[in-house]
Amino acid sequence: MALLGAIAQVFLPLSLMAFGGGNTIIAEIQRLVVDLHGWVTAEEFSGMYAISQAIPGPSMMIVTLLGLAAGGLGGALVSTIATFGPCSALVYALARQWDRAKDAPWRGAVERGLAPVAIGLIFAGGWALGREILDNPWEYAILALSTFVLARWNVNPLKLMVAVGTLALGAGILLGG
């Protein structure tokens, strides 16, 4: 129970800080679950991030995987509900006020003001994920190539993941991995 409480405590405030979407709090989640609580290693964290990106659903599904690693099935449920609950309650509370703000001047300023904060946080997330686990030249090559391909062309990311995964599996078998 104490563990589930600790899991809830970590994930409850997180979504309320995710200004600009789920991708903006990756670095913060890593700081909390890897550095502060030690529930997973940096390598496991990044592996789980990869899985969460490949499965369907909203961003931030990594919280389910982290809850599972920290506290089993109960942990997965607690981390998921704790993550999506507060922001959902906020949306519910404000949904009916939204129409009134349609032409308010602050709307544009808030949108424009949040965008660069979110961009910085997204790159910080990439930094946090890569910093401790990328140690081979070929990993950097895949990183650079995927970034280029995805940013340049409108490729379905899942197809790219399947292609990269198959190539890695083939290379691993051939090299007797």
Partner: peptide
Amino acid sequence: SQNPLVSLVLSALTATSIGMTLATGFSI
């Protein structure tokens, strides 16, 4: 995750998913 082949494939996928994150940043 301890299986060497699985961890190899996952390292490759991790690098790709970090690429996805950076690409999101670039396209925004």
